[in-house]
Write a protein that binds this DNA or RNA. Structure first.
Lengths: 337, 337
DNA sequence: TTGAAAGCGATACCAA
DNA sequence: TTGGTATCGCTTTCAA
C-alpha cells in the first residue's frame, strides 16, 4: 500500500512529529530539516492519509448531499452551486440518490453519518420521512432542500411554492377562458403547495366562477403527451377556451406537443403554464409560460447555511422560502408585467 | 461528540471486542449478550465510525468521480449510472468538478488520494494532463471517461468519436449539397476525433469535391445563434445548399434557431447534424439529426470496470470505445437506415 | 528545534 | 463465548 508518515520519517532520519510539522507548514522547523523532509516526500509522491487525520481531528471536512435522482434537472443546478461553494471552503462532497425510496433514503443517511460527514444537505422525499426524523434525533447539522418541516425545527431552503402556484393561477384566471385544468404528478410537499396556491388564486377571482378539473399522477413527458386526447374528449379543450396549469415543465411540454399534434390552438384556445423554467422552456416550439425558481441560488444559500451551522454550532433555525417568478411567454396571452 | 464503541461497551458491561462482533453480525456471541448490546446501541442511536474502521481495514469503500462541470448534461447520465452501480456494491461516491482548469483538476485528484478513495473515475480535461500523469505514477485504480490516453496505459471508456464524426460526415456528403461547414467548440480530444472522422468521410466521397469551411471556438447556444448571420454573409448559406456538422447539440440548436430567425430553409437549403443526442434534440422545433452516444452505458461500464480493478488488482488494461449511432431526423433529408 | 508517547475509534489476533 | 492488547496513520501534548 501507500507509504505512511512513518516511512517518510525513517528515510528522512527524523521523527514523525517533524514530518507532521512540515506537512502543517509549521514555522518551528529548521529550514534544512524542512527541505530534507520535502525532498523525501516528493521523491515518493507521499500524500498523508486524511482517514487517519480525520480520526485524530474528529472532523472530516466532508458534507453529504442526498437528492431523489441525479437526472432530475432540479438537482443539477443545486449540486453545481453546492459544489462550487464547497470547493472554496475545502470541503468534499459525498453524493447519493434516494430514487424516491424512503428506505433507501434512510439507509443513505445512516451511511453518511457513519462516514462522519459534518453536515447533510437533503432534498427529502417527504419532510417527515424517517430519514429526517433520524437526523433530527442526532446532533448533525442538516438543511432541507425543496421542503420544509412542520414537525421538526429543521433549517430549510426552498421556493415559496404556494406563492408560485398562486402566480400561475392568478395569471390564468385573468385570461379569456371558460375553464381551468390542473395537472399534477408525484405527490410531494412542493407540489401540494403549488396546488394550494393555485386554488387560492382561483377562489380569489370572485368576479367569475371557473370550474377546475384536476388530473393527478401525470408524471412524465409521455404522460403529458397522452393526456391531450383525453382532455379533448373529457373537457372539450379543442373548442372550449381553457387555462391549464401543469406543475412541472417537462410534463407541460409533453402536453403541449400532444395538443399541437391534435391541432389545438395554443395559446388561442388553450393557454398553458408550467413550473420550473427549465432551460428549454424558453426555446420550445411554443415558448412556455412558467414559474421560475432560482435553483442556483437555493443551492448556494443552502450550502452556506450548512457550513455556518457546522462552524457555529449554536445557530438558530432558519426557514428560507425564496420568491418564485412568473415568466410569461407565448403559451399564454398575458403581457409580461 | 457522538458515542464511541467504548461508551457502548461500558454501558453494556462487555468489551469493545464484543460490540465489534455484534456489529459485524458474528455468530460467536451469546444471544442474551447480543440483545443486551443491541438495546444499548439502539437506545443511543449509536453508529460506528467508518473513519476508524477505514483506518484499520485500510480501505474506504469510496470512489471519486471527477468531471468538468456538473451542469454538463453529459455528466448527468454518467453520474447517474455510476451511482446506481455503486449503491449495489455498497460504495460511496465523492464528486468534484474541475471547471476546465487543470490545476483544479490536479488538486482534486490529490485531495481524493488523500481521502484514500479506492479508485477514480475521471473525465480528464486532457488525457495527458498532470492529473492523469499523477494517477499513472501512483498505484490507484482509475478509469478515464470520454478520453483515452496514448501516453499511459490507462483504462478508458469512451465513445468512438472518430466513427461518430465519420457517421455525420458520410451522411452529409450523400445529400444534395454544394458545400460543407464544420463548427467546433472547445478543444478536447473527443472533439478532435469527431473532426478527424468527419474529414475522413469527406475525403472518401471521391465522386464529388466539396469544400469544407471550418469555424472554431463556437461554444455556446448563443455563439451558435450569432453564427447564423455570419454564415449567411461569408458562406451564402441562404441560397447555397449546405451541409453543416456541429460537434455539439446545444450549439447546433443555437445555430438552428439563428437560421430559422433568418428564414433559412432547414432542411431544404441547409442540413444540420449535431452530436450527443441530448434529450431535447428529438423534440426540438425541427428535430435534430445527431450522433448519439450511450452515456448511461458508458457510466455503467466504467463503474463496473473500476470496481473490478479495485477488487482484482492484476487486471489488464482495457480500452473501450463504444460505437456511436446516427439518428436521422428532420434537420437533414436522409432516410433513417 | 526536535522527539517520545498518548490518543483518536475501530478491528484482529491470541488467550482464557 | 469473551476479553486484553496491539495496530491502523496521523496529531498533539509535554519534555528535552
Amino acid at each position: 500500500m501507500s507509504l505512511t508518515i512513518f516511512d517518510i520519517a525513517k528515510e528522512a532520519g527524523v521523527s514523525t512529529t517533524t514530518i507532521s510539522r512540515v506537512l502543517a507548514g509549521s514555522s518551528k522547523v529548521k529550514n534544512s530539516t524542512r527541505e530534507k523532509v520535502l525532498r523525501v516526500i516528493e521523491k515518493h509522491h507521499y500524500e498523508p492519509s486524511e482517514v487517519a487525520r480525520n480520526l485524530t481531528a474528529r472532523k472530516t471536512n466532508t458534507i453529504g448531499l442526498i437528492i431523489d435522482e441525479i437526472s432530475n434537472p432540479f438537482f443539477v443546478d443545486i449540486a453545481s452551486a453546492v459544489e462550487e461553494i464547497l470547493q472554496t471552503r475545502n470541503f468534499m462532497l459525498m453524493l447519493s440518490s434516494s430514487q424516491w425510496k424512503e428506505e433507501r433514503e434512510f439507509s443513505i443517511v445512516r451511511n453518511m453519518i457513519r462516514q462522519r460527514v459534518e453536515g447533510l444537505l437533503i432534498a427529502p422525499i417527504n419532510p417527515d420521512s424517517p430519514a429526517v426524523d433520524f437526523l433530527d434525533k442526532r446532533n448533525i447539522p442538516f438543511v432541507l432542500l425543496n421542503s420544509y418541516s412542520t414537525k421538526f425545527s429543521a433549517d430549510c431552503v426552498t421556493t415559496d411554492n404556494i406563492a408560485g402556484g398562486y402566480l400561475a393561477g392568478s395569471h390564468l384566471v385573468k385570461q379569456d377562458i371558460e375553464q381551468l385544468l390542473l395537472i399534477t404528478g408525484y405527490t410531494h410537499q412542493s407540489i401540494d403547495d403549488r396546488v394550494e396556491g393555485f386554488y387560492a388564486a382561483v377562489s380569489e377571482a370572485k368576479n367569475r366562477s371557473l370550474s377546475v378539473s384536476r388530473y393527478e399522477n401525470i408524471n412524465t413527458y409521455k404522460d403529458g403527451y397522452s393526456l391531450a386526447t383525453i382532455l379533448m374528449v373529457r373537457n372539450s379543450i379543442s373548442t372550449k377556451k381553457s387555462g391549464i396549469f401543469v406543475t412541472n415543465d417537462n410534463v407541460a411540454m409533453g402536453l403541449l406537443d400532444g395538443l399541437l399534434e391534435q391541432r389545438v390552438q395554443v395559446p388561442e384556445t388553450v393557454q398553458l403554464v408550467g413550473y420550473d423554467n427549465i432551460d428549454f422552456a424558453a426555446r420550445y416550439k411554443i415558448p412556455l409560460t412558467t414559474v421560475s425558481q432560482s435553483r442556483n441560488e437555493m443551492g448556494k444559500i443552502a450550502a452556506l447555511e450548512l457550513l455556518a451551522k457546522i462552524e457555529n454550532h449554536g445557530k438558530e433555525q432558519r426557514v428560507l422560502k425564496l420568491p418564485p417568478k412568473l415568466i410569461i411567454r407565448q403559451s399564454t396571452r398575458g403581457e409580461n408585467p
